[in-house]
Design a protein around this nucleic acid. Structure first.
Lengths: 217, 217, 217, 217
DNA sequence: TATGAATGAGCTTTCATTCAT
DNA sequence: AATGAATGAAAGCTCATTCAT
């Protein structure tokens, strides 16, 4: 069975590991293979072959196959939502408050870029969440929970300014996320296609603004 | 309506295989285990144990482990999109043409119900699509393609009636699907939660109608 | 008398596991190989080859390699001291009390027979005790402790009858055991040699009686 | 006396190898680990870690893992019996002939001291003898054989003086050794306990003298 | 001389699949 | 039809040993 808690993933980061060339090659090969075939269908001998190293080298740094997964997903998970929530909110707190559409455009562009950059890790992460209920639960508790409260504050801010509809902020966030997902998901399944971030951002923002925006007379 | 036939069709296709009690038990156990742990992390001895049969019995009807997967997903895939498009078009051909919101409400309720009814199969299906590029390709070619053309026709119909915005029908379908996905996905990850279909349908329709509807003066 | 039941009990406890022919063959092969080469130097493929079965069969009943060890040593350990202490004491409690030499002769003959019968298990057990401090501790706590108190009572009985010297019973038991060990150990190292139990018993008793007996005038 | 030279000789033979600090550290770590866990359960990386050196250094002096074992046991084996027999005989040749009890007391004290000093090596040696039939054979041929003939001469000397019973000298040696073993063995299994050599010697001699001595009227 | 990354053979273990009963 | 013992290929992993730095 794979990683049991997201907590472990947060602990490690790749930079601290001081990897050799060959060990980085192991990670690169694993990223490709895990995302293409899934964690369980990738054998460590597959990884060694693709990475051009011996099987022993695969286990030198990453004590177990799961250790490779942690090394790949750890840094990724740290970026999934915190950026979306924390950093943006900090940014807004210190700058002139723009209108909601500007806010939305920034956050959508940022997250779509993140998706595109971390397509492979995301695919592995989703696979893992779907077959490891502990991971899902921990992820939701530790990551989503905190983000929601902060995002909620932002939504309420714009709701009070009468820029967006007075729905439950969670509902609004759901629409933003799922609309972005509508552009991101197909690219996960067919990874050779590349996401046109600018156009996608424009389209997402246009649709979301119609869906939740309030026209000022 | 399609909704009521889903379960029936699934049962039928299993009956066509002339399954004994024990073999049905194998399928039931596999459905649960595959969706909870994933196909690869479920062993045939797990299945046998949960199903309360011997390992030999598992192989009597379903020659391989993959055979069980096919028996589970086959009937499911045939229901994913075709019915949604096909049957609705048949419905429209035989009834008075309703407005877009009515159409939307029907299709959303139908698909959300389908999601809820086939949650487990859907989860397995997604897992499979993410780690089996062949399956993804096959699914897209055989299922999505045909549905798109038929749905496109419907969208154009309402666009010509000036009820919805003049965007690429594919884009509109993407929003409808992804908005529904926003309600369905959390239930996949936390399968104990139950989807409130009525409320979800209302919310989806409300949001989509704001996003793509055109208000008549 | 206990002696005759040892082999029987061993067979019984194996039967309780409901072992098939091949699984018994695995145990037989493991007993030989472990005692000849040691547990660590015996590979499970060795066992499979010698037992004439597949490697899978080795693991069907005994989930791990250590499981085989437990199956071999479990019944053995239960016989090491308890019988020597418990049953003999019960016997004495219910029969006419013989003199110490008769008592000694019985116990020596019994234990030497036990050694000879369980030579291989004993060798494995000693190997294990020497490289597994947990096992040593457990063995001493669970087995030796209880036996000592009961044997002590017997010694004191004969000391009060002035048949043996008034040393600490533990010291006396130590001499009895180590003298027997002097006959048993060489046979462990060279297992092809067979212990002449009658002669050995006579010699042990003769020496011990000189060493701790009290001549009555 | 032989006793005091044991440690010195061991140190000498290591110095002959011109060992550096780190290499001595390797031997020290190996001695501890081999005796605690057994040779097979000790990995060379364990040794390197405990010794505080790199794995490469472990192999600089001792070409193989077995080479470390030889370096540890070689000097030990040369001391096991030869000195006991040889040096004592030399001693007897040059001094007034003492009585048997004096002889016995010296030899017992000497060997118990040797046991205590070389507890760890002895434990490793026994482990090795039990899982390596070649080693047992070699040891018996090269070491025990020679010693027996010399010791036999001594026993016969005292038998002719009518100090000890007229048993086969091998039998007498067996009792002496096994009685000492009765004190030494428990300390092997629980290495934290320390053998009280003086008291043990007194007890051993007292028991042996009763067992094989002849009271002069 | 010392290091530790790298190796690869071989180990323990799992599991889909078969087949005699 | 049903069983479950048996199989053996392949998986994850360990570790003694080598060698470039």
């Amino acid at each position: 069975m794979a990683i049991n808690n997201v907590e472990a993933l947060f602990a490690e980061s790749l930079n601290e590991l001081e990897l050799t060339k060959k060990q980085k090659s192991v990670l690169r090969a694993s990223l490709t293979l895990f995302s293409e075939q899934g964690f369980d269908r990738t054998s460590t001998s597959d990884i060694a072959r693709v990475a051009g190293v011996s099987e022993g080298t695969v286990y030198k740094q990453f004590k177990t196959k799961e250790g490779i997964l942690k090394a790949l997903l750890g840094p990724f998970i740290q970026q999934v939502l915190p950026k979306a929530a924390g950093e943006f909110l900090d940014t807004f707190a210190n700058t002139n408050v723009p209108d909601f559409e500007t806010f939305l455009r920034r956050i959508v562009a940022d997250r779509l870029t993140f998706f595109e950059t971390n397509k492979l890790q995301l695919k592995i992460f989703i696979q893992e969440i779907l077959s490891n209920s502990d991971m899902a639960a921990t992820f939701i508790n530790k990551t989503v929970g905190g983000a929601i409260t902060r995002i909620t504050a932002v939504m309420k801010f714009y709701q009070q300014k009468n820029e967006i509809v007075d729905w439950d902020p969670v509902r609004i966030v759901r629409y933003i996320m799922s609309t972005m997902l509508g552009y991101a998901l197909p690219n996960l399944i067919q990874p050779d296609k590349k996401l046109n971030i600018e156009q996608s951002t424009d389209e997402v923002v246009e649709f979301i603004m119609r869906g939740i925006g309030i026209k000022k007379s």
